[in-house]
Amino acid sequence: MELTTLWFIVVAFLWIGYFTLEGFDFGVGMLMPVLAKDNTERRVMINTIGPVWDGNEVWVLVAGGATFAAFPEWYATLFSGFYLPLLLILVALIVRNLAFEYRHKRDDARWQANWDRAIIFGSLIPAFLWGVAFANIVGGVPIDADSEFTGTVFTLLNPFGLLGGVVTTLLFATHGAMFVALKTVGDIRHRARALAIRLGLAAAVAAVVFMVWTQVDTGDLSSAIAFTAAALALVAALLAAVKGREGWAFTGTFATIALAVTGLFLALFPDVMPSSTDPAYSLTATSAAATAYTLKVMTWVAVFFTPIVLGYQAWSYWVFRKRIGTHHIPTAELEHAR
């Protein structure tokens, strides 16, 4: 296998890891005003992702770094052409992260409500814009002979891109609801599972339309297999949720997102940034790649560090595997006493 192909697979793997893990973080954040009836339940929802959200975000940093190092031309065209939506994503993530850290600093209802809004919108905005961005990457954008993006931000807000945003928002919301059902006890667990089923049905409709559209435009047999598997995984997840099997239901939404993103990368390859201006101007994995020496060095670094990172993150999930409920949340009086 050529190193350019290997690193295309590595970059795809990193984005799959990011969307499957950060996806349920986004979902939990988006659903706070829907699922939580009071402040205690909002704290339960935040605590389900509290030990893991920062580790999940590492994936996007590594994915961006790997893209920059392995495919500098891809990185340059992507981040210059998509600078506004990517900037909005970055700002939303920063505000959301601040909210996780500062929400509990004051026992004041208004203070906490404002940070709750930061969590909600800091989850919703990236969930939607990542879908818009990746839909446009796969569908193609105007790129000239100098590999420069010639469109505007409104170019990205086309029907295909907006549909991509709707799909990722619904899938992440379903994924998040499944995670809350898996990680909680009591009434919120049952409400989360019921909501996950309703959201999953809406996500299934939007996702099928999007995947068929993608397949018709740029797909091949391999992407068709991945998209079909993603649809079946979502159906299996919903059936498991109906039966009250939250573990299998969450596994199903996890597989759905992983397979759907896999299908997008399969539909994209061998391009990394298709040009809607002229196919000859498209950036390919070969033309956008770094030097062979750079790819060799990166490969050895990845071989050494990847198992360590995966092992540590798996360990952290295992440590914080237990369910939580409202009875685990200390009252304000107890907190002040401490």
Rank of each mutant, 00 (worst) to 15 (best):
F68G: 04
L61V: 15
G29P: 00
T20W: 09
V60L: 15
L35H: 02
M45E: 04
D25F: 09
T48I: 08
V34Y: 04
F79H: 06
P85V: 03
I49D: 13
R43Y: 01
D25P: 01
G29F: 10
F24N: 00
G23D: 10
F26T: 07
F24M: 03
F71P: 09
K37A: 10
M32W: 12
P33I: 08
M45I: 06
N47G: 05
W15D: 04
Y18H: 11
F24I: 02
I16G: 09
I49C: 04
P51D: 15
E41N: 01
V34A: 07
L21V: 01
P72A: 15
Y75E: 06
L14C: 13
I9E: 13
F19I: 06
I49Q: 08
S80L: 09
M32A: 08
R42C: 07
G65H: 00
E73K: 14
W53F: 11
F24L: 11
W74G: 00
V58K: 12
V52N: 07
G65W: 03
A70D: 07
F26P: 00
G23C: 11
A12N: 13
V60A: 14
V10P: 14
P85T: 11
A66Y: 08
N39C: 04
V10W: 02
Y18P: 08
V28P: 00
F24P: 00
A63P: 13
I9F: 04
A12G: 15
A69M: 04
A63K: 11
V62E: 11
G17M: 13
L35E: 09
V34K: 11
L78D: 09
E41C: 12
F13I: 04
Y18S: 07
G29R: 07
L35Q: 06
D38P: 04
I46F: 09
I46C: 10
L31G: 10
G55I: 12
V28G: 06
L87F: 03
T77P: 02
F68I: 06
L21W: 03
F24Q: 00
T20P: 01
P85M: 09
L21G: 03
K37C: 02
R42K: 14
P51W: 12
G64Y: 06
L86F: 07
D54W: 09
V52P: 09
V44M: 08
L87T: 14
T48L: 09
E57G: 01
K37G: 12
G50Q: 14
V52W: 04
F82Y: 11
V44A: 05
I16R: 03
V58A: 14
G50P: 05
P51N: 06
G65P: 03
Y18R: 06
R42M: 05
I9T: 13
T40S: 12
V44S: 05
T77M: 15
M32D: 02
G55H: 13
Y18T: 00
R43M: 08
F71H: 08
E22W: 02
N56Q: 05
T48M: 11
D38Q: 06
G23R: 02
F19C: 05
T40D: 09
P85R: 06
R43T: 02
I16Q: 09
D25Y: 06
P51H: 15
G55N: 10
P33R: 04
L87S: 12
L14A: 15
I16H: 05
N39R: 05
F79N: 02
G29D: 13
N39P: 00
M32I: 03
Y18I: 01
